[in-house]
Amino acid sequence: MTLMAMLFALVFVTELISWIGQSVLLEFVYSLYLRIFYSGTVTKQRKLKSEILLNKKELLQTSAQDQFAKWAKLRRSVDKGLADLEKLNSELSTVRSSFSLKFKSALWIMTTGLQFVIGWWYRKAAVFFLPPGWFGPLTWWLAFPFAPAGSVSCGMWQMACKRVIKVGERVVKELMVPSPSQVGTAGPVPSEQQRKEDAGKKSE
């Protein structure tokens, strides 16, 4: 029973991640990772962007001919800010690439990879035994490849769980998203009394 529940949970988590989207999870976890380990760098980047925008605004309002000293100082400040910002962006880009690779690898190991490992480790074990004669000649197929005869193997149980979860996902999506026939300007459905009155008018 424990093996059955464990395999179902693994398949469910894998399909849930696929449904939500790996990129969505990556963005969410990466934002948390930045807040915990690179909060100072992110704060510095945000502050530097604000300073550059303010200096650029002031630079545009300063005449290069009438206020050359001030204009040159602002120009140097903007150039230095852009150089520092580019360096910070490059640092965070490297961090993101490294984190993305590690995150995707960890996600694969904890879901699909773990399914393969458990399936191989328990390849000769029975998830559960079927009542005799329920599936006739197909009983051997449900035990494929190495499980005892009359039982359901890990691989077949994983396939069944995935199929059931896929069907459940499709049903949930259909319930959440109205069909094209339900969306329109048809208006409210007429009541029984209104239909009788309409029918009476047509007969007249």
Rank of each mutant, 00 (worst) to 15 (best):
R76H: 08
L59T: 03
T14E: 07
T43P: 02
W71S: 08
L54M: 12
R76G: 09
L59D: 02
T112P: 01
M6Q: 14
G150K: 05
A143W: 06
R35P: 00
V152S: 06
M159A: 12
F128C: 08
W120P: 01
L16K: 14
A125S: 11
G133I: 14
C161T: 06
T2N: 07
L101G: 02
S93N: 09
V189Y: 01
G168K: 02
N89T: 10
W157P: 04
G184N: 01
K173N: 06
T2V: 00
F8D: 01
G187D: 05
G200E: 13
S191W: 02
F12G: 01
I52E: 05
W134G: 00
L48S: 05
K57T: 12
T185Q: 09
G113C: 02
L114I: 08
Q67A: 14
F8K: 03
G168F: 00
W141G: 07
T62E: 07
L85T: 03
E51T: 13
M110N: 10
A106I: 09
L114K: 06
Q193P: 00
M110G: 13
Q194D: 09
W121T: 15
M159Q: 11
G40E: 10
F135W: 10
L107P: 11
W19F: 11
F68A: 11
V183F: 00
E91I: 13
L54R: 15
K56E: 14
S31L: 06
L59I: 04
P145Q: 06
R170M: 11
G150I: 02
K70H: 11
E174T: 12
K124I: 08
M159S: 08
L26I: 05
Q65D: 12
E51L: 14
V127Y: 02
T139D: 15
S151M: 10
P131Y: 03
Q115P: 07
E169T: 14
A72N: 12
E51R: 15
L34M: 07
R35M: 10
I109Q: 12
A64W: 08
A64H: 11
L107Y: 01
F28V: 05
V24G: 03
R76L: 11
S151L: 09
I36Q: 09
W121P: 04
N55P: 01
A126G: 15
S23V: 12
C154Q: 06
K166A: 15
S181I: 10
A126I: 04
K173A: 13
L74R: 05
V167C: 01
L130C: 08
V167K: 02
D66G: 04
V167A: 06
